[in-house]
Design a protein around this nucleic acid. Sequence first.
DNA 1: ACTCCGATTGTT
DNA 2: ACAATCGGAGTA
Length: 169
Amino acid sequence: MVETEAYLGPEDPASHASTRSGITNRNRMMFEAPGVAYVYRIYGVHWCLNVITGAEGEGQGVLIRGVEPTVGVESMARRRHGRRPLAAGPGRAAQALGVDGSLNGHHLSHTPLELLTGWTIADADVAITGRVGVAKAAEWPLRFFVRGSTGVSKASPHPGQRDALPPSP
DNA sequence: ACTCCGATTGTT
DNA sequence: ACAATCGGAGTA
């Protein structure tokens, strides 16, 4: 998992948990407990996988934007119908991992999808930029990716951005 | 009920 | 540059 984007709770204008709508049928899994998957359909075409990270009710989650294939490459290629890149980008990553709407709301410890942790990545190898494809608060430095990884979706939209922080809640 | 549009991708 | 594709969310 080499590229992610954080979406904060109701105070984040770009988040589906934004206070504008409150809790709806679409975004309600954002407010679930940490480790729950929030999967939603974008542009009527692709699935996007988020992992809830905030405490229950907080509405914080992390969008999985890019995966660098290491094991199971054959399966990923099959699910992607041989298209490249295999898993760089949220839609591609979800498809490569076999994620669809049926996973929405399931805790990741209770699904075929297993989240492995334990890798250490040096801070110097992690780039932090603004978020991709959002209309509001795009400049908030909440996109994280491993420099040079083939699993990263695209070049940084806001090069060099590393300092600014989102407003404290 | 009706319109608008999106945390994207693939093709022209 | 643009189509694909559809349900959520906002407006009435």
